[in-house]
């Protein structure tokens, strides 16, 4: 059970948007996490520096926030280890085949009114909902 947090989620979403706009304005790049990560850690001919800097920031912010006294960032993961690994591998294969993830297609792509991103977002939203339904209501959850 998690509570609906309209205001924090709205502010958080706007920060995500600011990040995407900043990266486009300064580096001319789409803020898609899967490809920033892949470009930073896997062999490729493209530039690494800005990707590594972005990832350091993305990891450092929650680390800093959660170390402020009195601040707790809710986190709860119930997926058993083998399923977590399986899910991670599927997400990796999916973002590579589908050229993007929730941030690349679901935020940056939709904001550019890209038809490919609209189709991708509808596909992954539908299969995620179906998967959650099967896991929780057919198999009774993890």
């Amino acid at each position: 059970m998690t509570e609906f947090t309209p205001w924090m989620s709205l502010v958080g979403g706007m920060f995500i948007g600011l990040s995407a706009v900043t990266l486009m304005a300064l580096h001319g790049r789409i803020a898609g996490l899967s490809h920033i990560l892949a470009g930073a850690v896997l062999p490729s001919q493209s530039l690494r520096g800005w990707r590594i800097a972005f990832l350091v920031g993305a990891v450092a912010a929650p680390l800093a926030l959660s170390s402020v006294p009195g601040v707790t960032i809710p986190f709860s993961s119930a997926t058993p280890l083998p399923w977590l690994i399986f899910g991670g591998v599927l997400v990796g294969i999916g973002v590579q085949l589908g050229s993007g993830c929730t941030s690349g297609h679901g935020v940056c792509g939709l904001a550019r009114f890209s038809t490919r991103s609209v189709v991708a977002t509808l596909c992954f939203m539908a299969t995620t909902a179906a998967t959650v339904f099967v896991v929780r209501h057919v198999f009774g959850g993890f």
Partner: peptide
Amino acid sequence: GASILGIGW
């Protein structure tokens, strides 16, 4: 790809 991503997610 997008559909596989959703299953993993």
